[in-house]
């Protein structure tokens, strides 16, 4: 029945491609979380009247974030080909997509981290200072826990965007469902392959969104 409806779909290939997409998304989300958090915290703490208020660092970080957030992803991949080659020795396969995915997504996430941190009640930071807390204590015990729901919902949005990025990276041969849909589906006119790849991507996105939403609401004690 399924074979008649979708004659060209090779389920083993499809499964492998889905795993590659998941692999790229998971790893890129992990690195994006760490780098984006570091960038976002730097942006927040160096802004005026904050603990590390520093115009130069703030401007430089802001410029970096804005530049990489503004470059269309498909162009960013091409621009980063020499860098990827230098780093991994190859520009094909899921690992080769990671630098571009992370550099594309981390600045995007950094902005969301900044917004999340700005939402924290200033009084709570002042209270921690009045207790004699060090800046590192304030970061780990006040800023991160108090903004956790916003950090998590931002990460969910970023992870969903990253699924889309992996599909774009697929066009230059990164592997995953994007490559499958483009090379096997589009270029060889096998619409059923494209359709199934799309449906699997949708399922992945829905699952990420659902998991992200439920973790976020669980973390929110307000």
């Amino acid at each position: 029945m399924l074979e008649k409806l979708l004659p060209n779909v090779d389920w083993i290939n499809m499964w492998e491609a889905a795993l590659e997409t998941l692999y790229m998304t998971a790893l890129a989300t992990g690195f994006t979380f760490i780098i984006g958090l570091a960038l976002g915290i730097t942006l927040f703490l160096t802004s005026p009247r904050q603990l590390w208020a520093n115009k130069l660092v703030n401007w430089l970080t802001g410029a970096f974030v804005n530049i990489f957030r503004s470059i269309p992803f498909i162009i960013l991949i091409i621009l980063l080909i020499p860098f990827t080659k230098l780093l991994l020795g190859s520009i094909r396969g899921p690992d080769a997509a990671l630098p571009a995915l992370i550099i594309g997504a981390a600045p995007f996430y950094a902005r969301m981290v900044l917004i999340a941190l700005r939402e924290i009640d200033k009084g709570v930071i002042e209270a921690a200072r009045s207790m004699g807390a060090k800046t590192s204590t304030i970061i780990w015990k006040v800023l991160l826990p108090e903004s956790l729901p916003a950090l998590l919902s931002g990460l969910t949005v970023t992870a969903v965007a990253l699924v889309g990025y992996t599909a774009m990276a697929g066009i230059i041969g990164a592997g995953g469902l994007g490559t499958l849909a483009f090379q096997d589906g589009f270029q060889r006119s096998r619409e059923d392959v494209t359709l199934v790849a799309t449906i699997i991507i949708l399922i992945i996105v829905f699952i990420i969104q659902w998991v992200g939403d439920s973790i976020t609401s669980k973390a929110d004690k307000r």
Partner: peptide, 11 residues
Amino acid sequence: MIFQHFNLLWS
């Protein structure tokens, strides 16, 4: 110090 708006950590 104690504060007008308490400034407790909601988390």
